[in-house]
Simulated scan of single mutants.
Amino acid sequence: MHPTYELTDAGDRYFDGLVDKFSRSLYQAPRGELRLAMLDYLLPQMLQLDQQPVLDVGGGLGQQAAWFAERQHPVTMTEPSLDMLTYARHWHREAKALPCEAMAYVHAPLQDLRQQAPGPWPLITCHAVLEWLGDPRSAIAHLTSLLAPGGQLSLMVFNRDALRFSNAVKGNLEKALSDRLEGKGKRQRLTPISPVTHAEVVEWGAENNLEVASVAGIRVFQDYLRQPPTSDKERETLLALEKKYCQQDPHWRLGRYLLYTLIKSETSQ
């Protein structure tokens, strides 16, 4: 019997009990390695970075928080899963040797951050979070309320259009045609419950006076390969291919994840 999981009252999926699965399946596997490599490549291009404070919302196992802390940003990492937050705190201290003063930790869901970490923040990261929420649209409003005027929101979402294309490639034609793409969030499988489209991000951003400054696709090609790379040379070639086309139309639109920089209007409060 596989364990089952319950969504929160808000319809969100948390990941208590899944630290090992996340670590093994996402970050010790080629897809996770490529995702982190692409973020390492894209974030310095897409963000104005000057060691400003960062709020990392739904920081998971702490990789993105560590990336900013290693670049001398004071980081506050928030995470609703206590298991994930405990792992991240230990990993930051033991494996990454980050000084205690570089990191702060908040055990809270996104919806509670107006009380727990109100800011306003010059830079917020929210990567691979919206697709696990029952109401991703309202999450944009919550994030905007935490952002300083002129502040940057680095948002990464699971791409619904890529999920449809992937299902078609795998032969799940009826599923793709009927657009039954959402996961249920009840088991260990990590199919998001609320995959998001580019049009939705643009619309929700405009509702909150957020301008899309830049967008890129993460894992544009990798998930559709018939044969995954088997050598370091092939992996290097794939990474070069991903870097070359991640911001070129139409290729970025089929990235498994879409990465955005959204800027809050200077006149917004």
Results as ranks from 00 to 15, higher is better:
residue 120 P to Q: 03
residue 105 Y to G: 01
residue 110 L to H: 01
residue 132 W to T: 11
residue 135 D to W: 07
residue 127 H to P: 00
residue 143 L to Y: 06
residue 129 V to K: 12
residue 104 A to L: 04
residue 128 A to H: 10
residue 94 E to R: 14
residue 128 A to S: 15
residue 102 A to I: 08
residue 101 E to H: 14
residue 123 L to T: 02
residue 98 L to I: 08
residue 134 G to D: 11
residue 139 A to K: 03
residue 121 W to N: 04
residue 111 Q to Y: 11
residue 125 T to L: 11
residue 122 P to M: 05
residue 136 P to F: 12
residue 94 E to W: 12
residue 134 G to A: 11
residue 127 H to A: 07
residue 99 P to R: 10
residue 99 P to V: 10
residue 114 R to F: 09
residue 127 H to Y: 09
residue 99 P to K: 04
residue 144 T to R: 15
residue 108 A to M: 06
residue 99 P to H: 04
residue 110 L to P: 03
residue 138 S to R: 14
residue 123 L to A: 02
residue 144 T to N: 13
residue 116 Q to P: 03
residue 124 I to K: 02
residue 108 A to R: 07
residue 131 E to Y: 06
residue 134 G to Y: 11
residue 132 W to Q: 11
residue 114 R to K: 14
residue 129 V to G: 01
residue 102 A to C: 11
residue 122 P to V: 07
residue 102 A to R: 15
residue 99 P to I: 06
residue 130 L to D: 02
residue 118 P to M: 04
residue 115 Q to I: 05
residue 98 L to Q: 09
residue 109 P to A: 05
residue 138 S to A: 14
residue 97 A to I: 00
residue 126 C to I: 07
residue 117 A to W: 10
residue 131 E to I: 07
residue 141 A to T: 15
residue 96 K to N: 00
residue 99 P to W: 04
residue 134 G to H: 07
residue 98 L to W: 04
residue 94 E to P: 00
residue 105 Y to L: 08
residue 97 A to P: 00
residue 108 A to Q: 07
residue 95 A to D: 09
residue 134 G to M: 01
residue 131 E to T: 06
residue 96 K to V: 13
residue 112 D to P: 00
residue 120 P to I: 02
residue 143 L to W: 00
residue 104 A to K: 14
residue 105 Y to P: 05
residue 107 H to M: 04
residue 124 I to H: 02
residue 121 W to Q: 09
residue 138 S to N: 10
residue 128 A to T: 12
residue 102 A to S: 15
residue 136 P to H: 03
residue 135 D to G: 06
residue 140 I to M: 14
residue 107 H to A: 04
residue 119 G to S: 07
residue 114 R to E: 14
residue 142 H to S: 12
residue 128 A to V: 10
residue 137 R to M: 03
residue 132 W to I: 05
residue 122 P to Y: 12
residue 117 A to S: 13
residue 97 A to K: 12
residue 133 L to K: 03
residue 115 Q to R: 12
residue 93 R to N: 05
residue 111 Q to C: 07
residue 140 I to T: 06
residue 128 A to D: 15
residue 127 H to C: 11
residue 129 V to N: 08
residue 131 E to S: 12
residue 125 T to H: 03
residue 143 L to R: 09
residue 140 I to P: 02
residue 129 V to L: 12
residue 120 P to Y: 07
residue 132 W to S: 09
residue 121 W to T: 05
residue 114 R to G: 14
residue 116 Q to E: 14
residue 131 E to R: 03
residue 110 L to W: 00
residue 116 Q to R: 15
residue 104 A to D: 13
residue 118 P to Y: 05
residue 103 M to F: 02
residue 99 P to Y: 01
residue 95 A to M: 10
residue 130 L to Y: 10
residue 130 L to I: 01
residue 118 P to V: 02
residue 135 D to A: 13
residue 108 A to K: 02
residue 130 L to C: 11
residue 116 Q to H: 13
residue 130 L to S: 09
residue 99 P to M: 06
residue 112 D to N: 06
residue 128 A to W: 05
residue 125 T to S: 14
residue 106 V to A: 02
residue 100 C to G: 14
residue 140 I to K: 01
residue 96 K to E: 12
residue 95 A to Q: 13
residue 129 V to S: 05
residue 109 P to Y: 04
residue 123 L to S: 02
residue 143 L to C: 04
residue 111 Q to G: 00
residue 123 L to F: 08
residue 140 I to N: 02
residue 135 D to L: 01
residue 127 H to L: 15
residue 144 T to D: 14
